[in-house]
Design a protein around this nucleic acid. Sequence first.
DNA 1: CTGAAAGCGCTTACAG
DNA 2: CTGAAAGCGCTTACAG
Lengths: 353, 353
Amino acid sequence: MRKKAPELTGVKEIARRANVSIGTVDRVIHNRKGVSEQTRKKINAIIEELGYTPNTMASLLAKKKVVTLAVLIPKASPQTDYWTYPLDGINVAHAEVKQFGIQLDLHFYDLNVKASFRKEAEKLLQTKPDGLILAPSFVDESLEFISKVKASGIPMVFINADIPHQEPLSYIGPDLFQSGKLAAQLISFMLGPQDEMLVVNMSTALENDHHLRRKELGFRRYFEEHAIFNKITTLDIKNTAADALESTLLRHFPKQHHIRAVFVTNSRVSQVAQIINKHNLDVLLVGYDFLKENIRCLSNNTVHFLICQRPKEQGYLAVMTLYRHLFNTGTVEPTVYMPIDIITRENFIFYKA
Amino acid sequence: MRKKAPELTGVKEIARRANVSIGTVDRVIHNRKGVSEQTRKKINAIIEELGYTPNTMASLLAKKKVVTLAVLIPKASPQTDYWTYPLDGINVAHAEVKQFGIQLDLHFYDLNVKASFRKEAEKLLQTKPDGLILAPSFVDESLEFISKVKASGIPMVFINADIPHQEPLSYIGPDLFQSGKLAAQLISFMLGPQDEMLVVNMSTALENDHHLRRKELGFRRYFEEHAIFNKITTLDIKNTAADALESTLLRHFPKQHHIRAVFVTNSRVSQVAQIINKHNLDVLLVGYDFLKENIRCLSNNTVHFLICQRPKEQGYLAVMTLYRHLFNTGTVEPTVYMPIDIITRENFIFYKA
DNA sequence: CTGAAAGCGCTTACAG
DNA sequence: CTGAAAGCGCTTACAG
């Protein structure tokens, strides 16, 4: 680690060459008004010639900016720790950028209580953040909130679920349809001519249904595209209590059943696994998300494939995207679909969510 | 974005409270000698009380440090563009940290020419870098080089392949054995009782063989562990020319063959795919790496699974690890096994290598 | 063992 | 339209 050569650099050198003060150079660099066209041109030419790029650290230091990023996502519930992962990613990213004066303002809502979304959204708006990370689970409530955010010009990143026609700064999350197709492909590898399939949509709340629907559509599309005509039955389960689930499920597994595979369209696959295991049914089970219970099912071979879309990375990228946007570092993609990862018993140990 | 409150912070505030100059505070912060035990204690107490952490940007700015990271990896060859990915990752990471005065010193060697490794290694050492990223493909040559690097105290990160007992600052790469097990699991899903399997190790050079061997071992281990006794035949192919490959391969696919699956232990799976396709053999094909030719085989359904270990991320993490080490930001893991990703026709579009 | 001063490269009032 | 000066939080000689 040696010192740089001590010649003049940066604004000073530009100022020297242009025969102006560094203040004027600064004005040109930031396109501020109050500079004659002539000096502006001269200075820009020198900047060009020198290939000058401003020193971010010096700039940040002098500005003493402190920017607040607000986060509004579901809280992790006892039923599922899914939302701990995006939060982890948000915190990791924050650790990397907080030295630039970025602070977080975290808000969590209850996925079972719409009112909690409204309340946190309201609180959040009071603080006038410089950027927002939103998981828009409730469509109507989100739409109302989004319009307010837009009105105040706060840049916004959606994670985990998109809402059409809202055009946030960026959407970072899964392509649900495609993940359904992937599930279908995995199952298709091991499908005999007589085998049937079950699609299980489990959700107490109706408002999340369209997500599950997208996955199911992708799933069915795959077989259509490949002219595979095995029978597929859909099961919509609203009562997800253990015994209700068990009786519903068993009704579809009669003595002489031909069901070879079950596709559970969300992270509740472990509940299905338990029942299938209990009754010793020999089926291939595919579901979603790298959760503790699900990993356990992978280990004991009751779930065979988990599809996962890097929830942690979604949180990480959301912060980084806002950082890049607010500090003018690099460009921002309007849509970032996460890779669709396949997790099995043999590769989950190295997976990092 | 508002200004911070204008109270004193950092070294100045500490100095004020301790009734010393900021110079003395600086000495204590960096454990430099020349401070009485008494003042040291007093200052440390205040630092503790304030929960002070130094401002990295200010520190970096004042230091004007420029640190050089040397990179020694294979060059991408016409046969395979694999090594473009780690390089991509290295460049992305560099873009993120170059504002901190980090520069790269890139060196590439030819995987078919050991002498090229020696030569580049020699050149690299002349420049006395502050850190090194090494892909140690040739074991003996690497060992020699590593001992020199160690002697000069340069911190070193291995990527893509490990060398036992060298204890670099960090190894970032795959667990080959485990990836072989994963390949076995994928194949096992679709294996009938009479089905046989083929393991194909393709390599002109002997020195890379132990890598392929590790994968094969993992592959075989899986079946042992699960008491699956389908026949597995190994094919070691040194002459990888198209026609030689074809005739060797065909010898193992007689008219009444029972070979259901072929596991190619490296990225040359597309060469096998071509032959299998040409002769209309109906087998499941599993291989390695997210390369253009391989993706094409995924698309036309001649290769079914590609196993991939994020070469780009390996490069990215290598730079970040050295950065963290040299700038004392965060901790460094001695071994970082990459996730073992499964790529199929239905998820490769969102994969980012 | 300690302090005062200059400086890193940029930004921000303020003065003219 | 332009310049001179102070300052961001830290580091580095240098002086004592």
